[in-house]
Deep mutational scan, measured.
Amino acid sequence: VEVSPDIYQQVRDELKRASVSQAVFARVAFNRTQGLLSEILRKEEDPRTASQSLLVNLRAMQNFLNLPEVERDRIYQ
């Protein structure tokens, strides 16, 4: 799965849209901590040159964001 270069903005938009914390998003989207998500968003590494471990996390976030909005909102509950 190709990771979109605007994945970082997509995540920020989703945090605002759903009014969820980084901690909640990190847990449900890719089963990691708020600290890691914060670092990923701060660095904004180009997905095309990202490490394998970062790509795994970015893909998981993208797959989560590809779910229908209704389903994502249900998962946040």
Rank of each mutant, 00 (worst) to 15 (best):
N63V: 09
A26D: 08
V20I: 15
E14D: 01
S4K: 07
A29N: 00
Q9D: 15
E45Y: 07
Y76W: 04
A26G: 06
R42I: 07
F30C: 08
D73M: 05
D46S: 10
R72F: 00
Y8M: 03
A29W: 03
I7T: 03
R17T: 02
L65R: 00
F30H: 01
V1Y: 02
R42D: 13
E39P: 02
K43W: 06
I40V: 05
R42G: 10
V3Y: 04
G35Y: 11
V28Q: 05
I7M: 09
R27A: 10
A29E: 00
N66Y: 08
T33N: 06
L41W: 00
V1R: 03
F30W: 03
V20T: 04
R42K: 11
E39A: 12
N66G: 10
R59G: 09
F30G: 07
N57Q: 12
A60S: 11
E69L: 11
P5H: 07
F30I: 06
Y76D: 00
R42Q: 14
S19Y: 10
L55Q: 10
Q22C: 05
A23F: 13
A18H: 06
K43R: 12
A60L: 10
R17V: 02
S53W: 08
E69P: 12
L54T: 14
L54C: 06
L37S: 03
F64I: 05
Q62E: 08
E71R: 07
R74W: 06
V56H: 15
L55I: 09
L65G: 02
Q62C: 05
R72G: 00
R27H: 13
S53D: 15
F25H: 01
A18T: 13
T49M: 14
E2Y: 14
V20M: 04
R12T: 10
S51E: 10
M61D: 02
S19F: 11
A23H: 13
E39F: 13
D13I: 15
F64P: 01
L58P: 01
Q10V: 06
S4M: 12
V3A: 04
I40S: 03
I75D: 14
R74D: 13
F30L: 09
E14Q: 02
A50R: 02
Q77F: 11
R12L: 03
R48G: 12
S4T: 09
V56C: 05
R17W: 01
R27K: 15
L54G: 05
L37M: 06
K43Y: 06
S21V: 04
E69Y: 06
E71L: 05
L36Y: 04
M61R: 00
L65N: 02
E39S: 10
V56R: 10
Q62I: 05
L54Y: 04
R32K: 15
F25C: 00
F25M: 03
Q34Y: 08
Q22F: 10
S53M: 07
R48V: 11
Q52V: 09
A18S: 15
R72L: 00
S38N: 13
V56N: 04
F25N: 00
L36E: 15
A18F: 05
V70K: 15
Q34G: 11
L67Y: 10
F30Q: 03
E39L: 10
F25S: 02
R59I: 07
I75R: 12
S21L: 03
A60Y: 12
P68I: 05
D73A: 04
F64Y: 05
P47D: 01
E2Q: 07
G35K: 15
L65D: 00
F30A: 06
P5K: 12
Q34I: 06
E45S: 08
L37R: 01
I40F: 06
A18N: 14
R74C: 15
Q52R: 14
Q52K: 09
R17E: 00
Y8F: 05
Y76E: 00
E71P: 00
S21E: 04
L41K: 00
L54N: 08
L67E: 09
S38C: 08
L67V: 07
E14W: 00
E45L: 08
E44R: 10
D46A: 10
R32W: 08
Q9W: 09
P5D: 07
E39V: 04
V11S: 00
L37A: 03
S19W: 08
L15V: 15
L41P: 02
V3C: 05
Q10D: 07
L15E: 03
D46Y: 04
K16V: 11
N31Y: 06
L67T: 08
E44H: 06
R59D: 06
P47Y: 03
I40N: 02
S38G: 13
Q62A: 12
F64R: 02
Y76T: 01
K16Y: 14
N57A: 08
T49R: 11
A50M: 05
P68D: 10
F25P: 01
M61F: 05
S53N: 08
E45G: 05
R32I: 06
D6F: 03
Y76H: 02
A60M: 11
L55N: 04
Q62T: 11
P68W: 00
R74P: 02
M61N: 02
E45F: 05
Q22A: 06
L58D: 01
K43F: 05
Q62L: 05
E14K: 02
N63A: 13
N66P: 00
I75K: 13
L41T: 02
L58A: 01
K43I: 07
L36G: 04
R74Y: 06
L54W: 03
Q62M: 07
E14M: 00
V11F: 01
I7N: 06
Y8D: 02
R59M: 12
V11D: 02
E45Q: 13
R42A: 13
P47K: 00
Q62Y: 04
K43Q: 10
G35N: 15
R48I: 11
A23D: 15
A26P: 00
Q34L: 07
S38K: 13
S53I: 07
L37N: 04
Y8I: 02
R72S: 02
S21Y: 03
R59F: 05
E2C: 15
V56P: 09
I40Y: 15
Q10T: 08
L67D: 00
I75V: 10
V3I: 15
A26I: 02
E69K: 10
V70H: 14
E45A: 08
I75Q: 15
N57F: 09
G35E: 15
L54D: 09
R59V: 13
R42E: 14
Q10L: 14
P68Y: 03
V3P: 07
L65C: 07
S19I: 09
S53Q: 14
V56L: 13
Y76P: 00
Q52A: 11
R74H: 07
S21K: 05
